[in-house]
Structure formats: C-alpha cells, structure tokens
Design a protein around this nucleic acid. Structure first.
Length: 819
RNA sequence: GCCUUGGUGGCGGAAUUGGUAUACGCGCUAGUCUUAGGAACUAGUUCCCGCAAGGGAUUGAGAGUUCGAGUCUCUCCCAAGGCACCA
C-alpha cells in the first residue's frame, strides 16, 4: 500500500470534480426539494484567501455535500464582491488599473478555493464589477428612484483635507482618515440616499426591519445589534411656550414621568431658535413680531459659543470631558404641566440630529443633566422615588413624588397619563424616534457602479432610460484624488445627450457604495445569466430565500441590514414573494493567531492556507478548522493541532489494508456505528462539526482495534467522513472498487433498534455522590435495581444501619440512595 | 454606562439539556520498535493526600432551589464584541 499522500489524491479529485461539474450543480428543472446554501461573497483582496474564509466555506461545503447526499437539490454558488476602495487606493499608488488588480486577485482566490475542494456551482458565479452584473445594480437604483426611495439632499460627509476626498464612514473611523491619519472634517455636499427609514416598521404586507427579525433564525447577538442600530425609542414630544411670546420650542423625551423635575431646558447650538434669536439681535429692522419683546442680554457670548461648537469635529464633541453651555439670558420657557418659567441653555451635549434638537432637563433623574446642573449650579428637584443603589441619582423608573395629582403613580402609568394630557391639550403627543438614518449611497470614487442619472439644464434630474443600461465605467481615468469623483474628468463619460430633450447634459459622476452591490447578489445566483431581468420571477421563487447564510460577524449591521432592506423593497414592489432574504444565519468566529492576538500582516502572524495545504493537505486543513471548536467561537490557531487530524486521516487510510468482506457481526461495534450515523447527521444539521468529527474519531479508533475490518463498516466510515474529507473519501471509495463518485451515494441511515443499549452501567449514588457502578440490563425495573443495589457490600457499608429516607431511580441511568 | 456572548484540566474544547464533569484532539510521562532522531504503536495523564486500596476537592466568586446543579434563580467579578452625550 502506498503512503497517504494528500497532494496527489487531492489534485486528482479536484480535476475530476472540475470535469464533472454536474456533481455539484443546482438543477433548475429538478423537482427535488431545494436548499440554498450561501457564503458571503468575498472581496478579492491581493493577500489571497484567509483561514477565516476557509472556516466558513468548509462549514457550508460540508453542509451542502450532506444535503445533496440526502437527496436535496442544492444551490451552493460563489462570486466576488469586486468593487471597492482597496483596489482603487492601490491604483492611486501604483497606477495599475483596478480591473487588472481585481482580475488577478480573482484568479488567485479561485485557485485557492478549488485547492480546498469546495463544491461550488461555478456556472452561476457573479462579479459585482462586471457590467453585466452592475447593469442590474443600476436598474435597481432606478427602481428605487422611480418609487421615491432614492433621493438627493445636502448632507454632511466625511472629508479628508489631505487626501482631498470624501470618505466612506468605514474609512473615517474614530474621526481619522484611514490612509493618511489626518483629521476628518464634515462637509456639506449633495448626496444620494436610500430611504431605509421607510422600512423600519411594517409596510403593507411587508414586515419591517424590526418585526422581521422575529421570524428568522439568526444569532441573538446579531439581532440585538440590528435592533440597537435602528435604535427605536418610544417617548413624548411636546411644546414649551417661550414666555411673553406665542413662539414655542418643542422637546422630545422618553421620561415624561419626570417632567415635574424639569429645572431648565437645553437646545443644540444648531437649533433654529438660536439662529433666529441672534438674527433678531443683529438686524433690529427685521424683528419678528412674536419675539419683539425679547431682549437677549448675552448674544455675543451665545454667538461665540455657537461658532466654537460648529468648528468642533464630531470627535471633539464626543470626547469633551466636561459639558459646556451658555444660558440664553433674557428668555424663559414655560413647563406646561406646572406653568413654571425656566432658563434656556445652548449646549452642545444636545444633538441637533436626534429628536427635536431640544430637551427638557431633569438633573435629578438624568446623568447628563445632573452633570451639567452641578457644573452651573442649577436646581435639582427629585420627582421619582426609588432605590438609587450606589449612584448619586436615580435614573430608573420608580414612584412619582412632587408631581401634583400624579403623585404615587408608577413611572410607566404616569407616562401614559401625562402623554394623554398632552394630547388632550393639543400641545404634544406620543412620539417614536429612531437612531437609524437614511442610507447615504453616493461615493465620490471611481471603482464602483456609476449612478445612472443625467443632469440636463432644461429637464433637470433625468434617470438613464433602461435601454441605455449599463452606464459603463470608462477605463481612461486619472485616479489622483482631487476631491471629486475621478469620473468628472472623463469627458467621454461626462458629456451626454439628455434622454428627454436631446440637449447637452452631464452624467452624475458619483458611484454607488459597494454595499449596494452586495445588497442583492444572492438574488442573482438564482438566474445569474439573465439579460432581461435581474432574475426571473420563476427562478427567484424556485431558489429563494436563502436557507443558510454563513459569514463574518463584522457584517452584522451594515451588509445584513441593507440586504434585508433591499429584499423588503422588492417584496413591497411585488418582485419577490418573501420579505426576509436569509432564513438562517450563522457567523464563523474569528481565528486568532497562535499567540491569541488577531492575525495581521504587520505582526507577521498570518497563517496562509496554501502553506497548510502543502504540508498537511486540504482535507486535514478542512477538518482541523472544523475541529478547533464551535463554528461561532473565536479561537486561536494551533499548528500542532493539525497533526492530530492528520493522524486520524492517515489511520483511516491505513485501514484499507485490513478489510475483510466477511460479515462477522460484532454487535457492540454495530451499536457504535449506528450511534455514530445518528450523531454525525444531527451534528451536521446543527452545524456542530467539532463534535461530529470527534464521533468519527471515536468510531475510527474502535475499528482500528479490530484485527479485520468489515468492508461494509469501512464503507460507512468513509461515507460519513466524505463531506469533511472529500478527497480522501473519493480515493478510498474508488479503491474499494466503486466506479461512481462517493457523492452520488445516499447518506446512511441508522436503525433505531441498533442504537438501543442492551446493557448499561447503572450509577449508584449515595446522598448524591457516585459510590459504585454496576452493569445491568438496560430495561431493569426500579424494584429489581433496588434489590440488587442494596445487596452490594459497598452500598451496605455506606448505609451502616442508617435509615434510608428515599431512593431515587432514573431509568437507564442511576439510582440515588438518600438518608 | 447600555446591549450581546462567554468564563470547564497545561492548551483547543465535550457533557444526551437537571442525572457518571473533564469525551475527542494537542501536549506531557513511561514503554515497544529503531543504529539514532523522528514517525508509528501500547499504557497513563483534572488537582491534592496515599506504595496501593481508597479518600477528599473541583466547572470565575458567593448564596439559593433540588435526592442531585457546569446546566435553573439571585448577587458580584472578569473577558471579548458592539453601541455610546440618542434625552
């Protein structure tokens, strides 16, 4: 027998599978039950495949192979998320066109993916930078546009003054530019948005982004991340009159129950009232009637404060250790509940973008207000009683005090009643606020899908007609960052005739956020070559939604939220018959370096899958990554650990010399085999691959002990192993004389009769402690067990004349004598 | 601060969901084989006391429920990830 040589075996079977794609292709015409098993398509980075990719791809590969062997019609495709910044930044540095960079990287990725024996259906491959793909990204943009879900407005964007460019939020983390580390500033520019906020709550028959979470099988943590991101809060919004005027400021609060504790109010520096008051002061001729009686005593001071706040970056405002603010001297606002006239402050701890940009301040029950009140010596009035624990103030709900007729109410009840009062008096109402903002989708960048809009001097904003799609990216552009999209400098691209009037017009030069491309790619796999639609309705109905989706937890919010949004829009517009794209989602946990830190190029502790494949083979790498621990856990790489799974594979390989085709019928081994069939199947379904592998190891160890290995048993072992180590399984299968691929085999079934134990080890406990064990028939009755156990010398010596209070008997498991 | 997930041998991790804690693998120890090293195989390996038989302790800490708790309840500590002046 030749040595186990994964290099030769693996190359051989990879070739075979490439020549017989039918083995793994999804059958559009088949009547078998479908299963759509999906990996998040990778960004083809220049550094190649990472062990993290291998982890998730192995998981879905095992699952897909298992389902196929169980007679399912499996759609398991792969593609590339090929637009994006790294390739463009690389082009700026080297002058090499992103197209070239990406196509090289895609080649490397495909080579690596194939070297691991993944059973993808490559006939459905997508690449988001391919005009045949982004034609439909653009088509979807126009669909959104026509339905009022894509719109343009002025917005603050991240701007790096050194690189002279707009940055995506992900590139401006912590307020610093990803590339040059300089401070990012906020700039007002015209930007495109998608109305994702329209889909937070249910819309017609389409479930909302919040309620939809209830019906999908996703990790709890991911659901709660999305909920947090959406940030729904239920409160009340009400008007406070400015004393001696008929003008109001409106505030939002979730704690209307604390309203009698309000001792002042605060507006954000950007609040319109501030600007209008200052205007009154500076241009007396244009005094508005309603505030003509007001005299602001410190308008200079306020003006300075507002100016200073405007100059601060978001980062500064967030990091400010102490709260600052200025009282607007000369005006008072009235608390409508008790008529008290209160001071009004401008302070930048109040956010202009959230709620109304103005708040009621209750220092006794809100930490921020408390901090501010202490600093400026403002009144602190308690109106809720309850347990403060070890804090200075009570911020939890409690019982109302000092609140007129609302005294003694519990916070929750009080909120209902106080809100009802506001509604009755028509000065306020219940109000729901969200943290989620509309999705800014335009990027002043080259390497993305162009936004299909044309600006005509006569007709204004004109969508590119469907027949003119795709709007292709020109190749001849200068990548140097200028602060505007590089597309602006391609005349060929920019200058265009207006589709409406035929006059001179200009194309939109911005491209779309890459997250737009990845928000719908899973739909394209159903019908990836369709040139008439993004996918036919029939095929969408056949294959979607995705039954299992696996990918990194870093996409918990953005990609997964956007993809859900797209699905909901398309459902709402009648293109899809489902409103959640991914029924079941799992994340692979991060694989850390051997030292327990994150793998990083700069630390030089990155494990390259190619090296591992070369040394131990793809099967060993696959099994090792699955064996390291639960799929979702973060776990450190241990090079030495691979040796263990390699030994296991080698052991299985060597067994082929000891097979025997005579039936010997070892009932103990048969029992183990059937238990293993059951366990491996169940574990794969629950994606607990580590314990499935452990069960296979136990079976292999047991078979190894046999002098002769029965051929039927050996075949079973190989079949159970095949989804995990496909190359080895194919090779051994062929050696056993089979001419067809092992993946044409049916998954073995277990016989429930065979997994029943005839004898069990009954645990004998005395006062809950294990004191003895005894082999008995599995169906021993309580009485029989008692009789036998109480006769045992060891048990007798423990009892020693003491009175037995009771005896607990758990059938097939244990007996516990209590005294 | 809030949300989420965790905390089990020297290490990665198991535990039929309330019933033998430490499966499987790594490592380590001893042995067989080998000129040697390695590989392979066999046996052992939670910790403490003991030559052994045996006994005791043990799932981050503490309490509770129970005949019985890694698992359920409460309080606290620690770690990772996310959100974060969102009123």
């Amino acid at each position: 027998m030749e040595k186990y040589n994964p290099e030769i075996i693996e190359r051989k079977w990879q070739k075979y599978w490439a020549k017989n794609p039918d083995n793994f292709s999804a059958k559009d015409e088949s009547g078998q039950e479908k299963a759509f098993i999906l990996d998040m398509f990778p960004y083809p980075s220049g550094t190649g495949l990472h062990v993290g990719h291998v982890e998730s791809y192995t998981a879905t590969d095992i699952y897909s192979r298992y389902l196929r062997m169980n007679g399912k019609n499996v759609l398991h495709p792969q593609g590339f998320d090929a637009f994006g910044l790294p390739a463009e930044n690389y082009a700026i540095k080297t002058g090499i066109h992103p197209k070239e960079t990406i196509s090289n990287a895609v080649e490397v990725f495909k080579r690596q993916i194939n070297s691991l024996g993944f059973s993808y259906d490559w006939s459905r491959e997508v690449n988001s930078s391919d005009p045949k793909y982004y034609k439909w990204t653009q088509w979807l943009f126009l669909l959104f546009y026509k339905n009022g879900l894509a719109y343009k407005k002025k917005a603050k964007v991240n701007w790096c003054p050194k690189c002279q460019t707009v940055l995506a939020n992900e590139q401006a983390e912590n307020g610093k530019c990803e590339r040059c580390e300089s401070e990012v500033i906020q700039k007002d520019l015209e930007q495109w948005f998608f109305k994702i906020t329209d889909f937070v709550e249910d819309k017609g028959k389409t479930s909302g982004l919040l309620s939809g979470l209830e019906k999908i099988d996703w990790p709890n943590s991911t659901k709660s991340l999305q909920k947090n991101w959406i940030g729904k809060s239920v409160g009340a919004q009400f008007k406070m009159q400015i004393e001696n005027t008929d003008k109001f400021i409106e505030v939002y609060t979730t704690r209307i129950d604390t309203v009698f504790g309000m001792t002042y109010a605060v507006v954000a520096p950007e609040h319109e009232i501030v600007a209008s008051l200052l205007k009154v002061e500076s241009r007396k001729s244009k005094v508005k009637r309603e505030i003509q009686n007001l005299k602001i005593e410190n308008s200079d001071e306020i003006g300075k404060y507002v100016e200073a706040s405007k100059k601060k970056t978001d980062l500064d405002r967030m990091e400010a250790k102490e709260k600052t603010g200025v009282e607007i001297k000369g005006i008072k606002v009235i608390n409508p509940f008790n008529g008290e006239a209160l001071s009004l402050f401008v302070a930048d701890y109040v956010l202009s973008q959230y709620g109304t940009g103005a708040v009621m301040a209750v220092p006794a029950h809100d930490e921020r207000d408390f901090e501010f009140a202490k600093k400026y010596n403002l009144e602190i009035k308690e109106v809720i009683s309850g347990d403060k624990k070890d804090k200075e103030i009570l911020t939890d709900d409690g019982i109302l005090i000092n609140s007129t007729e609302y005294n003694n109410l519990e916070s929750g009840e009080a909120r209902e009643k106080l809100t009802a009062w506001l509604e009755e008096k028509k000065i306020g109402q219940r109000k729901i606020n969200y943290k989620l903002r509309d999705w800014l989708v335009s990027r002043q960048r080259y390497w993305g899908a162009p936004i299909p809009i044309i600006y005509c001097e006569k007709c204004g904003e004109v969508p590119v007609p469907e027949k003119d799609l795709p709007v292709e990216l020109p190749d001849d552009v200068d990548f140097k960052p200028t602060g505007e999209s590089p597309l602006k400098y391609s005349k060929k691209f920019q200058e265009v005739k207006c589709p409406k009037c035929g006059g001179e017009a200009k194309r939109e030069s911005d491209t779309m956020d890459t997250f737009v491309c990845s928000s719908w790619y899973y739909l394209r796999y159903a019908d990836s070559k369709n040139e008439k639609e993004f996918a036919s309705k029939e095929k969408l109905e056949k294959w979607l939604p995705v039954d299992l989706y696996v990918g990194g937890a870093e996409h918990s919010v953005l990609h997964l939220l956007y993809a859900r949004f797209f699905t909901k829009v398309l459902h709402n517009l009648g293109y899809l018959n489902f409103d959640e794209p991914f029924l079941k989602l799992r994340h692979q946990g991060t694989i850390l370096a051997e030292d327990g830190t994150k793998m990083s190029k700069s630390k030089g502790n990155v494990v390259n899958p190619d090296d591992v494949v070369k040394e131990f083979g793809a099967d060993a790498l696959r099994i090792f990554e699955m064996f390291m621990g639960p799929l979702e856990d973060m776990k450190p790489w241990q090079t030495k650990g691979i040796v263990g799974v390699y030994r296991f594979l080698e052991k299985t390989w060597k067994m082929q010399t000891r097979i025997n085709d005579q039936e010997t019928g070892d009932s103990k081994l048969n029992n183990l085999i059937h238990k293993t069939i059951k366990k491996v199947g169940k574990d794969i379904e629950e994606m607990r691959f580590n314990t499935a592998i452990s069960a296979l190891m136990i079976l292999a160890n047991e078979m190894e002990k046999q002098e002769k290995i029965q051929i039927t048993n050996y075949q079973l072992l190989i079949t159970l192993l095949s989804p995990f180590a496909p190359h080895l399984a194919e090779e051994l299968w062929e050696k056993l004389g089979h001419s067809e691929s092992i993946f044409k085999e049916e998954w073995p079934t277990y016989d429930p009769e065979m997994i029943k134990d005839e004898e069990i080890e009954l645990i004998i406990q005395i006062n809950g402690k294990v004191r003895d064990k005894i082999i008995v028939s599995a169906d021993i009755s309580e009485d029989e067990a008692k009789t036998i156990v109480l006769e045992r010398e060891k048990v007798k010596s423990y009892i020693l004349g003491r009175e037995i209070r009771k005896i607990i008997f758990v059938k097939g498991r244990l007996i516990n004598i209590v005294f």
